[in-house]
Simulated assay, not measured.
Amino acid sequence: MTSTVASPGELLRGWRTRRRRSQMDLALDVGVSTRHLSFVETGRSRASRELLLDLADHLELPLRERNALLLAAGFAPIYAESRLDSASLDAVRGALGHLLDGHEPFPALVIDRCGDVVMSNRAVAPLLGLLDPAWSTPPVNVYRLSLHPQALAPHIRNLDQWAGHLVHRLERLADLTGDPRLTALLAEVRGYAGADATTVRSEHVVLPLHLAHPDGDLRLYSTITHFGAAWDVTLDELSIETFVPADASTRALLDTWMRDGRPAA
């Protein structure tokens, strides 16, 4: 068997199609002729490093995909990809820890592009107390954890709505990044969520996660934060997901758990 590597022109054409941009529209944005862009896409012309980066910027490519485009064209990648535990990211890791700790007694976690948890605060543990401890073994994936029928799914009272939200989020990420790992994960969780998961609408102004627990139901709103100007692939792919109580009873329960320790499962 032989494998083929996409040319820079093929990658550009694929991203342009994914972003629903015409050659004329994109060429006008970057200041080249439509003819030249066409020649770059077909391989008749070789794009400069600067033009590739300009095209990638206008097509809103994530940093990982910008590196891949440069490599396909024979240029060195310009964005580093550091391990989160590396010394170069000490300040970032410290800032993330500060944000997570400061959000207690409410749950907060840091996830990577595919939804694997890389950091979390103490308030997350009580939410997992309902589950087999195996579900807390890294890597913990928030999509799988939420929608697998042996994980949190049976405890989510508005499962159809929450599944629809997560499936839509994954669809958007898969389309934005073109990452085959996300495409595979999307197919997996669609199987958990069921065919009708994306059709259910909520009467709430913000969809809450409505989680059943022996100590009392929890209703949590979710917010997602990204680094604003990441120049490292790892940081570009991180998200901070924080949960805040949607009602007074949820706030009181979270306060009690943090004050008295982890509740019994």
Score class of each variant (00 low, 15 high):
Asp57Ala: 15
His58Cys: 03
Gly43Ala: 06
Leu53Gln: 11
Leu52Lys: 01
His58Leu: 11
Ala73Thr: 06
Ala76Phe: 09
Glu41Thr: 02
Ala72Pro: 07
Asp57Pro: 01
Arg49Phe: 00
Pro62Trp: 00
Leu55Arg: 10
Ala72Leu: 04
His58Tyr: 12
Asn67Glu: 05
Pro62Cys: 03
Pro77Val: 07
Ile78Phe: 11
Leu70His: 00
Glu60Asp: 15
Glu65Ala: 13
Ala47Trp: 06
His58Gly: 07
Arg66Asp: 09
Arg64Asp: 02
Glu81Arg: 14
Leu52Val: 11
Ser45Arg: 10
Thr42Gln: 01
Arg66Thr: 11
Ala80Arg: 13
Ala73Asp: 11
Phe75Thr: 07
Phe75Lys: 02
Asn67Cys: 05
Glu41Cys: 03
Leu55His: 12
Leu70Phe: 02
Thr42Asp: 00
Gly43Asn: 08
Arg83Ile: 02
Arg46Val: 11
Ala80Asp: 12
Leu63Arg: 04
Glu65Arg: 14
Arg83Glu: 14
Leu55Glu: 11
Ala56Lys: 00
Arg64Glu: 12
Leu55Ile: 14
Pro77Asp: 03
Leu53Tyr: 00
Leu84Thr: 07
Ala56Met: 02
Leu51His: 03
His58Ala: 02
Arg49Thr: 02
Leu51Gln: 10
His58Pro: 00
Glu60Val: 13
Thr42Glu: 04
Ala68Asn: 13
Phe75Arg: 04
Ala73Glu: 03
Ala72Lys: 10
Ser86Met: 08
Pro77Glu: 07
Asp85Phe: 00
Gly74Thr: 05
Gly74Ile: 12
Pro62Thr: 08
Asp57Val: 13
Leu63Val: 02
Leu84Phe: 04
Asp57Thr: 13
Glu50Gly: 01
Leu53Gly: 02
Asp54Tyr: 04
Thr42Arg: 09
Leu55Ser: 01
Ala72Thr: 05
Arg46Ser: 11
Ala73Ser: 13
Ala76Arg: 14
Leu53Cys: 12
Pro77Ser: 05
Asp57Leu: 12
Arg66Val: 09
Asp57Met: 11
Glu50Ala: 13
Glu81Pro: 04
Pro77Gln: 07
Leu84Asn: 04
Ala80Lys: 06
Ser48Tyr: 01
Arg49Tyr: 05
Ala56Leu: 01
Phe75Cys: 08
Gly74Lys: 11
Asp54Phe: 00
Ile78Glu: 12
Ser45Ala: 15
Ser86Arg: 02
Ser48Gly: 14
Ser48Ala: 01
Asp57His: 15
Gly74Ala: 09
Arg49His: 13
Arg83Met: 10
Arg44Gly: 03
Arg66Leu: 08
Ile78Val: 15
Arg46Leu: 07
Leu51Tyr: 06
Leu61Pro: 01
Leu61Trp: 00
Pro62Asp: 09
His58Gln: 14
Glu81Ala: 12
Ser82Val: 02
Asp85Tyr: 01
Ser86Asn: 07
Ala68Leu: 13
Tyr79Ala: 11
Glu65Gln: 14
Arg46Thr: 13
Ser82Pro: 08
Tyr79Phe: 15
Gly43His: 05
Glu65Thr: 12
